[in-house]
Design a protein around this nucleic acid. Structure first.
Lengths: 232, 232
DNA sequence: ATAGTTAGTTGATGAATGTCAAGACGTGTA
DNA sequence: TACACGTCTTGACATTCATCAACTAACTAT
């Protein structure tokens, strides 16, 4: 793999403190690969052969059961996914596919587990990473259980707004079909929710959203830092 | 604290491999305490001062937002809760209260973080524990997003049945009000779901459920090991 | 005993959300 | 250009689920 990729990986908190030789052994075993859009990467229930890192593009994690399907998360660069399954050597609970042409790094799970056992710094970094993942799923669950569909959509827009540095206009980072599934509703219902929010401080134009009245948007969305704040 | 408690803690996978002196330092700082039923232990948003371990009784983890409330999990002996917040030194995402008279062990978070930094075996054990917690929330989320109310109730009974070693009669481990919230529905709806399931292989009598026709129960519940199997 | 309290049930109703069908719009391709 | 395709939107309708109210049963306290 290229040295630039290596530097990027080194920059991730997960790998920042790994001993040099351990890090090299991981990178030797790893390989970067480009995938077209809409390619299945892993299936639910398979055993975790690789730890994945998204370098470019985006990857959807989703689950299926008896004919129904739902998006669990969308992974943007640069971050890992399915770390928990890798560490536990357990079957994947979610399937993964590319949403767009993407560049991924694959590190064999056995190497990850070896270094995890040998290098305390790596073990500690994994703890922090897993704790973050855990807290992020808990937040998603609170979002689902404590809010109506409109509130979920409203708060999603608010988060986009915050991330953009409160620019007036924000853009949806992926298709509405995917967003609807992430937010636990049908695409039709997401459309209606966007429609309803137009009288509460926003204006939609395709994937672009203009925030006209942040206060009104907050009034109907009722944001809560213990659900929405990515840092908490 | 008593030696018997200490032995119980030592028996937890989380503490099994901690070095003796580190373990003692944790236990010196910790204290066991009995609480009556329905006592608030922690509130959402507070910083994580203690790692909790349920020794006896049971504890409900729940969340609140703008007047709504939902149960996230119920913790039975012997296990820890709010490990992630402790490690990250971050605010609790969930509140906790006793459901019944309970005995808990409280370990100051700072001590946990110290040993976590010093003892690689402890760090590794925490990784495994956190990975399990993470996977368990993911499963709950799949349960919520991919299933109807009746399916969730049916699969809950199936899990009870499996845990009991497939005894004909199982008993709900806590009140229906709490169960309804855990399963993401109202108590009224849980009642109706139980009612509906009576024509699909079960018979209810208060908190006791007789499984008459496991195949019929599975037919309507559509169990899925990647959601229901606690080991996977 | 009597009243008060709580958990649970049941029925009637309404709100929220999903489903189905049709159409608009944009995009890539023959 | 015209066609097919996918995405999104909109409306009508069905279903699921929550809400409200009334009621029962069991337990507590006086």
């Amino acid at each position: 793999m290229r040295d630039t990729d290596k530097d990027i990986i080194r920059g991730l908190r997960l790998f920042a403190d790994v001993e040099a030789d351990k890090f090299d052994s991981l990178m030797m075993a790893a390989y970067a690969q480009r995938f077209p859009a809409h390619v299945d990467l892993i299936r639910e229930g398979e055993t975790a052969d690789f730890l994945y890192i998204v370098l470019e593009g985006s990857v959807e994690l989703f689950s299926t059961s008896h004919g129904r399907e739902t998006s669990m998360a969308i992974v943007a660069p640069v971050s890992t996914f399915i770390l928990a399954a890798t560490i536990k050597d357990a079957p994947y609970l979610m399937a993964a596919r590319t949403l767009e042409p993407s560049k991924l790094l694959l590190i064999p799970s056995s190497n990850v587990r070896t270094v995890f056992g040998d290098d305390p710094a790596f073990a500690r970094a994994i703890v922090t990473e897993l704790a973050s993942c855990y807290r992020s799923v808990v937040k998603s669950m609170k979002n689902l259980k404590l809010r109506t569909a409109i509130e979920r959509v409203g708060n999603y827009i608010i988060r986009l707004h915050d991330k953009s540095g409160k620019a007036d206009i924000v853009e949806l980072p992926f298709g509405k079909r995917n967003l609807a599934s992430i937010l636990g509703m049908t695409p039709e219902n997401l459309s209606r929710a966007f429609g309803a929010l137009q009288s509460h401080g926003i204006m939609m134009d395709g994937a672009r959203i203009e925030i006209l009245d942040r206060a009104a948007l907050e009034a109907i969305s009722k944001p809560n830092p213990l659900i929405d704040d990515p840092r908490s």
